[in-house]
Design a protein around this nucleic acid. Structure first.
Lengths: 123, 123
DNA sequence: TTGACGCATGCCGTTATGGGAATATGATGG
DNA sequence: CCATCATATTCCCATAACGGCATGCGTCAA
């Protein structure tokens, strides 16, 4: 049966396919943070962040695939650098909620007012 | 053996425990987006977004646990509302990269310059 | 109290994911 | 070509996470 006709149980969807998911992993955020300081060869980066070399490579692969880092070969090394542009969509999405942060307290406050009101009316 | 002495293979760590992970799921982002319009009872929300009621409840639970939504019982309904404050840490983290967005082109440009240079020298 | 409605949970099946360990691949210097 | 350093990939394990489905639970009206 062709894949496009498959109608069985749909399990978990792929998640390491966009910036949102890439930065959901703490270690990948650490990597990005480190890369703000400039280029890093994998081994140094792994040691600096206390992770194994394979793990570093794997995380870097994810970051590469979603376009958050770039690589450049220098001798036997592969130096990774930041490509922060990929974070822009996330920033913009979050930006759509910025106006609601300050409202939070107001809403909570009016909510509390409602509670008081209800209590007054029921005692 | 007590959990704290367990030293076997450490598998995947829990991921639905903070805002970063909560918003990594597209449907949860949809829910948050919808909640900007105000309070929503679960069923309406599920229908509006084309997801099953149980799925909506499950996603809402995650959002509740990481503090991105609030609930309020109204009759038999449970009305969910936005608690955008939880997005603030994400926004701040991303903010730490904002200065690198515009730099991106410069970096890419100098990278291209290097390439040209290398080609000139090797032909 | 009994239905009915609205929602939360539990269970199952499938896939994704992260970590460790071992191994493959690539580039460099001799 | 060969040995070596730097990385990437593969294999395996354990478990988290999603979706569908069935069911439990709480609230309200009759």
């Amino acid at each position: 049966m062709p894949l496009w006709e498959y109608d069985g149980v749909m399990a978990r969807a792929a998640t390491t396919s966009d910036a949102f998911n890439a930065i959901a992993e703490p270690q990948r955020r650490d990597i990005l943070g480190l890369l703000r300081a400039g280029e890093w060869p994998v081994t140094d980066l792994a040691q600096e962040l206390g992770m194994s070399q394979p793990q570093a490579s794997k995380h870097l692969r994810v970051l590469r695939e979603v376009g958050l880092v770039r690589v450049r070969g220098v001798g036997k090394q592969r130096r990774y650098s930041l490509d922060a542009g990929g974070l822009r969509p996330v920033h913009e999405w979050i930006g759509g909620f910025e106006q609601f942060w300050n409202e939070s307290f107001d809403r909570l406050d009016s909510y509390v007012q409602d509670l008081k009101h209800d209590r007054r009316n029921s005692q």
